[in-house]
Design a protein around this nucleic acid. Structure first.
Lengths: 348, 348
DNA sequence: ACTGGCACTCGAAACATGAGAGTGCCAGGG
DNA sequence: CCCTGGCACTCTCATGTTTCGAGTGCCAGT
């Protein structure tokens, strides 16, 4: 553990360095620390502590004899030893309520959330749409709309209704035929969750020749294709992002900006990162610097939490920014926004 | 007109300057021009022409005695005097076909289009979703699904079907009642386009007390609310963007990057800009530098065109990049992608 | 109308210099 | 044992100086 090797005061010095560096973006020296923070000791003492911190690779000097800068490991220890989550200011609380309180439409709500989060933190905000992966298929219906059209209706456990019109090439559609097909498909898929249903539908499509007349196979395949498309569209996780302009704040990502923008555009990666991050047992988790390397975000830090939406499942949200960010504030903000969002969605 | 004041060769020199500057990102001097392009004259002659171009504010010198750089006005004249649209290479053509040919789902298609466009041009690509603003309401249906549920179905002129389940607080739903309400609402809205229908639905909601029993007002309001939400969701214009990482290419937006990112995030602005740009009679239009100032994109250039989707209406697409971009190539690419997309959507 | 020549300007790069901030370390004191 | 003041040392940054070369403008000559 850290406490084995770093003294009480050493930790305090680390905290001071992180705080000063975050606000000034300049390496911080021993003198600056004793000036700005009321340690009861002299600069020389701080220097000794700093030498120790440097041995532990918690801080580093950009060049011999300039101030120190926290390393990934330093930020990590800093975050892990943040004692309490600083409460939000009343202004921030009311901003959240005002901003999120005005809308009942889910899409609008999430759009507001992501903008709010990016404004409160001055970072890139990411909000995942509620995942329907575990939602069950409640109802499947096929309705003949004429001689060559079939309306495919899909109702999910959450009450979401999707449908799509399939136009069949030949005029072979009879009500009885459609009903038979409907019973067949519904019998196979209703009650499964979306992931299972998709697999099952794939299977049905593959073995199509075993259970329909050969001359109907094409039609059935088409209809199944529509159902499959609906399942896939609902299964897929989507995210919404705001505040990218914050990335170009000078002094943050300088050279690595292209990579970061690239990584953000690759939404699949972000989804994985957030998923991984939130899977722990913490209410809000942070991932710092090189810990994000597998996701192409080596220089960045991510703070993530999750919100609950109707039903039991959770989706993720959070912010992404430079390593040099206000962890204490952002953790508090992310946590607060996540909990407000859960509350709002619970009420609806 | 330009030809009044700028000689034939002067124009050729301008073209040479633009081409060289675009590819090198360095001010281009008279010597470089005679070296790289086979003018039959000496550098001194070119210098005289350049002095003229400078008088016309078509080019400018970053500092006394260095090469020249095209101005907004210079780029504009260059684009306007691009004689023919350079055809795409066969590689590009096949890339387009391969990329766009694989999908029949509209969302997927547009997602592919925007990625393709950004990769072919190395710029930020923007594609607007088909606008349903002018689409007519073809059919409205309310179906009682039990004692407290009503399914609201909305079918648009394009064949898009939307529906949503409304759960009513009290168990007052009878089939007859729902049918009456349906006739009422459908009678008022069917045949209008989405914009009109939305206004009309607002009106209906406002005067609700005049045409239903007081004790039913809440139910009716709820149902109308669902219809209204559907109308609004379909009316709104959405865009999808790809290739933001291209903006951070060094030497392009340097300092103004935050503003550009900001402007891109503000999708409403982009929609206006694209709309404005395409409204002319040209197949593909360009907007250069300060012409974009009202949209917060002073340093950028936009190349826009539009594609046709089933029905008669058109939506926009294009690319956005630094003033110093390959106009000839990008115009050709945007045009080709737009026409392919129209073709694909026409077939479906 | 074009060309070659020439003086001039200005930025970029290379190098030197001094100031300042910050460190490491040591000997001495509570 | 921990802390302190002091001191020599190192490295960056800002500044100044010089040189070099690319490019221009202009003019006299074809």
């Amino acid at each position: 553990m850290a406490s084995e090797r770093v003294s009480e005061r050493g930790l305090a010095v680390l905290h001071a360095i992180v705080r000063d560096y975050v606000s000034s973006n300049e390496p911080v020296g021993s003198k600056a620390i004793v000036d700005r923070h009321r340690f009861g000791v002299s600069a020389a003492t701080i220097r000794n502590d700093m030498a120790l911190l440097e041995d532990e690779e918690l801080i580093a000097a950009p060049h011999t004899s300039s101030g120190r800068v926290p390393t990934d490991k330093g930020y990590r220890l800093y975050v892990d030893t943040l004692s309490r989550i600083r409460p939000l200011t009343s202004g921030q609380r009311s901003a959240i309520e005002r901003f999120l309180g005005e809308s009942h439409d889910l899409d609008d709500m999430l759009a507001r959330t992501v903008r709010l989060l990016s404004q409160l933190t001055n970072q890139v905000a990411v909000v995942q749409y509620p995942s329907l992966r575990r939602t069950k298929v409640r109802h499947i219906d096929l309705v003949a709309l004429g001689e060559d059209r079939v309306l495919c209706v899909l109702i999910l456990g959450t009450g979401v209704v999707e449908q799509q019109l399939a136009t069949l090439p030949a005029a072979q559609v009879t009500e009885a035929w459609v009903n038979g097909l409907r019973d067949r498909i519904a019998g196979a898929l209703v009650g499964l969750d979306l992931e299972e249903a998709e697999a099952e539908a794939q299977l049905l499509t593959g073995t199509i020749d075993d259970w329909v007349q050969p001359d109907e196979a094409d039609l059935v395949r088409l209809v199944l294709g529509v159902v499959l498309a609906q399942l896939q569209a609902n299964r897929s996780d989507r995210i919404t992002i705001a505040g990218r302009a914050n990335l170009s704040r000078p002094g943050d990502f300088e050279g690595s900006l292209p990579q970061v923008l690239e990584a953000i555009e690759e939404q699949v990666t972000l989804l994985r990162l957030f998923g991984e991050l939130v899977s722990g047992d913490r209410e809000v988790a942070a991932s710092i610097g090189r810990e994000n390397e597998p996701y192409g975000l080596a220089g960045a830090s991510v703070i993530a939490s999750s919100y609950e939406h109707e039903g039991d499942s959770r989706s993720n949200l959070g912010v992404l920014g430079p390593m040099r960010m206000d962890y204490a504030g952002n953790i508090a903000t992310v946590r607060a926004v996540a909990s407000y969002l859960s509350k709002m969605l619970g009420e609806a």
